[in-house]
Nucleic acid binder design. Structure first.
Lengths: 194, 194
DNA sequence: CGAATTTTCGACCAATATTTTCGAAGAAAT
DNA sequence: ATTTCTTCGAAAATATTGGTCGAAAATTCG
């Protein structure tokens, strides 16, 4: 390989795809290695652990997410209107969750119910949030519906704080906690409009 | 539960969804149980093994596939025309494989190349064929393009034989072999136009 | 009701799979 | 030619998982 940073990027990209489909637990180092056509042990020269890779992936994707949001959020007008103080997260082609999304409209649930439903459904499932962030189709459509300039700002602010609970305090948080943190920031935090 | 058959159907439906996403190996009995809100051990009262469930799922889906085909195959006209002696398998919204499908048109590959590509890509991956059969979007669109009455009949005939290599001889075939058998029947067998 | 039967499930285990380490050895650099 | 950087096979350490078993819970039956 050319240099370490280059190599790490390759791993992050490749592992990200696998993680996004299978989730953290079901993704094996063997798979990651095989996808990159290298020996499994070699990965440990560039990363400390599987968690380390995962963290890098999430960090990478979170960045993309924030950048996309920052650059597009002002150009988007809400086609919904009406509902105040709520930010709606649209995830087209995001199978399961899009059902819940539809449910919100059908049943007039608010976001707190929405979150509860997600939590209930994906309890202890790191897969949920990973897919949430990584899923290709979703990524492009996440946060493309906001209903007020104020909320838009709130999202930006909140997302800018994404790194803090996830990575700065990383020594204090295990994976599950970090993932819950993401969920909180992405959903609960935003809804709170703080 | 009401009765055994009813219960088995529930398991088959639920397990099928999980299998279709994670493949045989990555799907755990715990998951299947949890999805059904029952204890893992209970499943073994209705099924002999994980393989047994898997087999039931494939059998179920293969049946759906054949039924759908049988009832719709004559109503479909080929929008493609031209290519003779080949049956094209369209799998809309079936991410990876649909790419290969497109590749066939773009690069003028025939079905033998198609199959080779699949085999190469999903070598040793039972996931491939399972997803092929189970994937919701795919199921509805599999085999909706045929280019001759003759080939249409060939498909029907071939699919009617689906059960034979898969289940009647099940004692002689392990899972991997059975899956290869499906692949053969679904693709190679059909293409052979016999 | 109470015995007999069916169904559920927690606790456990052997087998397997997976993450991570380690050292040797191949490349590359100095 | 020596040192440093990188790769990887083998294996240690650990974790997971399919499947078993007996006991409890539920249901049926007399």
């Amino acid at each position: 390989m050319i240099n370490k940073e280059e190599f790490r990027k390759k791993v992050i990209g490749s592992a990200g795809e696998i993680f996004s489909h299978y989730g953290f637990k079901k993704t094996t180092m063997d798979e990651i290695a095989k996808a990159l056509n290298i020996g499994k042990s070699s990965i440990y020269y560039y990363f400390d652990s599987k968690e380390d890779i995962f963290e890098a992936v999430v960090f990478h994707e979170a960045n993309i997410l924030r950048n996309e949001l920052t650059t597009t959020i002002k150009a988007v007008e809400s086609p919904i209107g009406k509902m105040k103080n709520y930010v709606f997260v649209r995830m087209k082609s995001f199978e399961k969750l899009s059902n819940y999304y539809n449910a919100i409209f059908d049943k007039n649930l608010d976001h707190f119910d929405f979150i509860e439903t997600i939590r209930e459904k994906y309890d202890r499932e790191e897969l949920a949030i990973l897919r949430l962030i990584l899923y290709d189709g979703a990524r492009k459509n996440v946060f493309n519906v906001v209903n007020s300039e104020y909320t838009a700002m709130a999202i930006q602010t909140t997302l800018k704080g994404l790194e803090v609970p996830l990575f700065w305090k990383k020594k204090e948080l295990n994976i599950e906690n970090r993932l819950n943190a993401i969920l909180d920031v992405l959903f609960f935090g935003i809804v709170k409009d703080r």
